[in-house]
Amino acid sequence: MPSTSPWGGRDDSEAGVIRSHFLNLVVFSVLVAIFFAFLTQNRTADRLRVIFVLGGAMIVLSLIVAYVMYPFPLQR
């Protein structure tokens, strides 16, 4: 479909797109963890701790939820 964007829009080459679910999860978790680390902490050590704890928790908990959902069928 031709783009109607005045900037030419995006083509469908999907350059730079992350298709891996897990990699998307990791990137998202790390970005959110860094954001909250800088938002809530003042010292570098505390920020690093928040990044590891929050980022790790988001990744691990998401994997646990995904594992729990695994027995559910995709289609009825």
Partner: peptide
Amino acid sequence: AFFLVVLLTFGFGLASG
């Protein structure tokens, strides 16, 4: 830090459709 993180998040969003 905020500039980079928000812009990266925004950029990933646009690039991912």
